[in-house]
Design a protein around this nucleic acid. Structure first.
Lengths: 160, 160
DNA sequence: CTAATATGAATGAAGG
DNA sequence: CCTTCATTCATATTAG
């Protein structure tokens, strides 16, 4: 990720200028249009094409486009799942509802995705873990131990 | 693929029940060291040995190790190709530019490799600012092209 | 300023 | 090996 694009306009100072890609409104519009047109998982060539198109409105890389579609898909599915879960599981019993409908298609020419109305859903999932300081004292032993490797052991049969 | 069940918070219910394995920093260090030592595709025996080693710093299964190396290999190759493509195709100008087949697959580089001390001299600082007016004719053209089925409008209540 | 949310990016896990 | 999904991390933006 080396495409700088986030140009902050006089915000809090001390910005390392290492921002992530921020799609421009036009880019978002294009991406959403493509997504809503049925192309929810564009192949490589399509991704490149889309990137080229987006590049006219700001710096963007193939990876950004790829990430965008991945996140979009995931997000849509999660929203759907939560919505369905809330709809199909009001409060009748303490049972657990299982959903094992995963229709994976390589190329979604036949739009199997339901049209979603985004923008009015509030999702609350705030959870984060803290990373404790771990002492890496024993690791040094291992590192020192494997300093004797010189042969590149590749192509081995590990079929289970 | 299914080599063994990944050990995950067994007994002693004092863990926040992690869904997937999260390698500890020491484990990552060991794994990376091994990988950089040339062992990029360890056989079954080696995998087991590595797992035993890693287990000293946290619960881990053979499958986790296997997956880790697999993903690591894939990621490395991907970075290679992506980097090569980026080096040979510095194009971020506003206008029509023909680019050769840029084979990009998935996410780009991320981790800091131990060796490999050269940096890419790509300087794509061609950042164009669109003035506040979001009236881009090109976007409109594109949108008009794919207006077919789904509503492209957010917060829409398509009835009738 | 802090908390909550939105979203780009990274990675473990599987499927083919 | 390849692609893809699900989960998590990190950061930007916004609300309080």
């Amino acid at each position: 990720m080396d495409q700088e694009g986030a140009s902050q306009s006089t915000s809090t100072s001390t910005e390392p200028v290492r921002s992530r890609w921020s799609p421009k409104p036009e880019q978002i519009l294009i991406l959403e249009s493509i997504f809503n047109s049925g192309i929810v998982n564009p192949p490589k060539d399509e991704t490149v094409r889309i990137r080229k198109m987006l590049e006219k409105f700001g710096a963007v890389g193939d990876a950004n486009v790829f990430y965008w579609f991945q996140n979009r898909r995931s997000r849509s599915r999660r929203r759907q799942r939560q919505l369905q879960a809330a709809t199909a599981a009001p409060a009748t019993s303490g049972g657990d509802q299982h959903m094992t409908a995963m229709s994976m298609h390589q190329y979604p020419y036949s739009n199997s995705e339901i049209d979603l109305g985004f923008g009015s859903c509030i999702n609350s999932s705030a959870n984060y873990f803290l990373n404790g300081t771990t002492s890496s004292s024993q690791v040094s032993s291992f590192l020192l131990g494997l300093s004797s490797s010189s042969g590149v052991c590749e192509t081995n049969g590990m079929e289970n």
